[in-house]
Each structure stands twice: as structure tokens, then as C-alpha cells.
Nucleic acid binder design. Sequence first.
RNA 1: GGCCAGAACUCUGGAU
Length: 248
Amino acid sequence: VTSWNSIIAGYFQNYRPQEARSLFDKMPERNTTSWNSMISGYVKNNMLNHARKMFDMMPERNVVSWTAMVRGYIQEGAISEAESIFHQMPEKNVVSWTVMLGGLIQENRIDDARRLFDAMPEKDVVARTSMISGYCQQGRLAEARELFDDMPRRNVISWTTMISGYAQNLQVDIARKLFEVMPEKNEVSWTAMLTGYTQCGQVEEAYDIFERMPNKPLAACNAMILGFGQSGKVVEARRVFNQMGVKD
RNA sequence: GGCCAGAACUCUGGAU
């Protein structure tokens, strides 16, 4: 059963819902994970109505089934429906809460999001980072920073979120300070810092970051080229373009 | 110990 379930997920990842379905129909036995794979697969492929049918048909639902449906409605922008499902859930875990939190943030209902956040029975690093990200999107950096400082644990994503928040809100110097002290950086962190500089019109600094990057992913090259382009440095932009491995 | 659900960067496309 486990193998079949994996194949189903694989079909959906490759946008082949019909093949996933026919495999599902042929399976000699199914467990809750099989049904859940169908639901989340349909959600991924923007086929919420199919997901819902599966959800209604399945013999028993667990917290993953419910959470996938909440996520589906959020993705469709049907927030009140998502909230309704969320409140109907027989049990919720930290993931369910975080999905709902993300839905409110997506709707710019940041204060509602905060209330939900405060109501969470437990908050892990993902939930906290999501809330921080929401505040950053609204330019409410002080509140974001307070949550960040209070985190019991941070990972590279939490750090990058906070840095990016400062950078996007034109506080690139504060972003840089955090960037320098973060314990480990990945490609996204570097690119976020680079973008912060280009958006503040500090192309030299951006290029300095770019050069110091251990490797230069496509996203960083894109950001760098755009940064040069916006400040009229066409030659430099061209040079970066010519250096990149995969162009698109 | 294994991608059935959740958080971060650039661009593009789609939907509104």
C-alpha cells in the first residue's frame, strides 16, 4: 500500500491527476494515507471539487485529511469556507493551525492572524516564522522582531524571513546586521540580502554580496541582473548574464 | 529512518 501511495503522489507532482485516479481505483486496498494523497494531489492541481468528493467519500478522516482540505479552500481564496472547516475539525495539530494562520495572513487579516496565533496550544518554529512573515509583509517590523527575538529556536528560514522583512521595508542596514550574525546561510538568505540592496538602490553593495556567494543560483543572478538594469548599468548586467550557467 | 498537510529569496506564467 505504501508503494502505491507514493506512486499516486508522484503522478500528482507531475500533473497527471487522471493517472493517479486510475491507479487509485485499481488499488487492492487503500488506507487513509491513500485517500489523503488523492486529496492533497487534487488540491495541488487546483481541483478542489475533486478533493472534496474524495474527502466526503473516504471511510475515515484523520487530521491530515482535514488540514489538506483547509489548505485547499485557502488556496482557492475561499477563506470563510476554510475557517468553517477548520472549526469543524475534530482535532487539530500545530500544522492545521499554521495552515489556517497562513490563510488569514494571505488575506491581510494580520490582526486576526495574531489572535489565532495567540490561541495556538503550541507554536513551533514554522508557526512563528509564518507570523513573522505576515508582520513583515505589512511593514510591521517591530512586532515581527519581537516575535523573532522571543523564539526559543530559530532556523535558517526564520532568519531569512526576518532579514528579508527588513530589506523589503528599506531597512537594509538592519538586515545586514542580522545577516552577518546569522549562524548559517543558504542560497535564499544570500539572495534575499542581495535583493535588499538592489531595492534600496545600493547596487555596489549588492554586487559585493553577489561576489561573495559560495555559489550563484539562478534566482541570485536574476536579482543581480535586474539590480544592475534598474540603475542603468547595462554592461555589468550583461556580464552577469553571460556568466550564468543556465539562462532563461 | 523514508515527499499524505504548514513558514523564507529573484523572475515568469496563470487566476482575480
